[in-house]
Design a protein around this nucleic acid. Sequence first.
DNA 1: TGCATAAGTGAGAATGATTCTCAGTTGCCT
DNA 2: AGGCAACTGAGAATCATTCTCACTTATGCA
Lengths: 164, 164
Amino acid sequence: MHATRVCRGVCVVKPMSHPTSQRPESPDSAAYSPGRRSPQRALVAQGAVAFDGAFTVDELLSCVRESDAKIGSATVYRAVSAMVSHGFLEAVGERDGHALYLRCTDNEHHHHLVCTGCGTVAHAPCPLDDHAIEQAAAQGFVITRHEVNIYGLCAQCLRRGDAQ
Amino acid sequence: MHATRVCRGVCVVKPMSHPTSQRPESPDSAAYSPGRRSPQRALVAQGAVAFDGAFTVDELLSCVRESDAKIGSATVYRAVSAMVSHGFLEAVGERDGHALYLRCTDNEHHHHLVCTGCGTVAHAPCPLDDHAIEQAAAQGFVITRHEVNIYGLCAQCLRRGDAQ
DNA sequence: TGCATAAGTGAGAATGATTCTCAGTTGCCT
DNA sequence: AGGCAACTGAGAATCATTCTCACTTATGCA
Ligand SMILES: [Zn+2]
Ligand SMILES: [Zn+2]
Ligand SMILES: [Zn+2]
Ligand SMILES: [Zn+2]
């Protein structure tokens, strides 16, 4: 159905030799999440960065398992939650009932267009400009939150003729 | 947490006296869904219409149960699915893990702004204008689907000071 | 009108992503 | 070094939604 989504080589990081000694200090290990620094969270962050585009928690899990075979799925869910609430990851819709996440380094607010074939992502501007906000205000509303999820097919998948 | 969401009086329709005879022929019973006409689907359609704004399947279910106490939840789920794919209902995001639906009679494409306090809905224009589509095309993408869910608070809920 | 047939129904089981529990670990601060 | 709260992992639990299956029942056609 979908092309197998693999994270790039970077993902398969040098497996940590031992718990306490010689822990891989990822360059952004400080930024990915608040709270304590753990090797598991560092691996999850590295895995997320290694994906080209959108990924599910399952995909991230199996990617991370290549480095730490016995990491628990709950740990990855927890790490993803923390990263999302810290802004290191963004939720970008879902695929087949699995939530999609994305690491995007562009820090001005915008949205994403996800290829349903391969997970590749393109940027899309936010529709909530001043005009939209005023229009909402004219109807008595104050906007607190919004989701814009756009799906499509990238050039490659179009060429390959992947359906849907 | 949330104000109790009730459908208006219309919702509590005259309970059908008996299966085969004297079935309530709702005015739009023909339009709500493709396929066969059943009293259950008519009730579900009437219930949906009776809501002012967005509602969850649970809310719709308990509304419909006031007319037919023993309607199955699967039946309501099925009816909602059929109505969504027929365009009679629209999905407008979620609340606490429950999908939100809405009956909107405005048939030109647009999106919705849902009050998280009471479910009241306002209209919002679609952000996917020609420019956005061209911009996607410039990145090699063809858009196939999109979701725009906006959440906020309506004037009434703001006045009442409902949080979130 | 009377049948055939496929669509709809309902009770309950199943699904399955995500969250929770709980008994260990282990960063991190003093 | 010690204390403790945050983190982990295994597995159980949650819980909205879907599926199964054995009936019903619209609906089109003869
Ligand atoms: Zn693609
Ligand atoms: Zn935005
Ligand atoms: Zn409101
Ligand atoms: Zn739109």
